[in-house]
Amino acid sequence: MARGGDVRFWGLDFPEPLPEREAEISAADLVATFSAGWTLGEVQSMLRSEGLLIPHGGLCLEHPASQWPVRAADLTLEQAIGFDFPHALGHLYGGWTDWVLGLTVEDANSPGSEVKLGSRVVKSVAGYDGQKLFCGALGAFGRIVSVTLRVYPLSVPLHADLRGSGGPPSEDCVLHRVRPADLAALEATVGEHALALDRLGAWAVYPLGQKEDPPLRFAGDQLWRYGQVPELNPAARRLLTQAKVQLDPNDQHQPALWRPA
């Protein structure tokens, strides 16, 4: 995959990265603010030079055998937050929704104006945490301009336990949230095809068998075909519809997303 703006995944176009490239890192505060157009790989490199990191295990990040179609390090921060892909260290360190302390976003309802959400400190309960809605929204609510993140010291233990093959060879596979109790059984069933991403059993990716349906046997929290936008539950779909009305009333961003057929 080409870096930055060339991402086309699940049939969704992400717009070109915004041109700004600013970075402000405070090791003493474990907080950093970046323009959203930096790639995750670039950000990790800047943080590493300060003795810091984002504990994102990636969907193959730093996994040399990987041939996967998505390298997390190549995503811009805007894309990474928008996709909010599960990653190898999620069970230990959370994900974007835990790390994003604040965002500056373009107000889709008022072209040219920017809005600040959240804060730039590790702890704040002032106002509504709108920044969290942008995590996993696939860009549906508008452009992210800059991101303030909680970051971690390089010394945090990285327990990611990558196993199995180098990853699925095609999109014909399943990404499945596996509960700890099911992980061993899953590995036993799908063997080398499984890539168990977390020793505590966070996520697994494995080929979708032609005659079997592993998800029926493993009662995980979530499941989606790797090649498709995941479905939302009815409550989340209802809220998403209302959010589009409020935040992107002209439907300028990802207009086809999550629309009923």
Binding site: T97, D129, K132, L133, A137, A235, A243
Partner: peptide
């Protein structure tokens, strides 16, 4: 309305 919200793919409604 009764809404059942869960962690998973899509916007983080629980966080909101």
């Amino acid at each position: 309305e009764i809404l059942e919200l869960e962690r998973g793919f899509g916007p983080d409604w629980i966080g909101m």
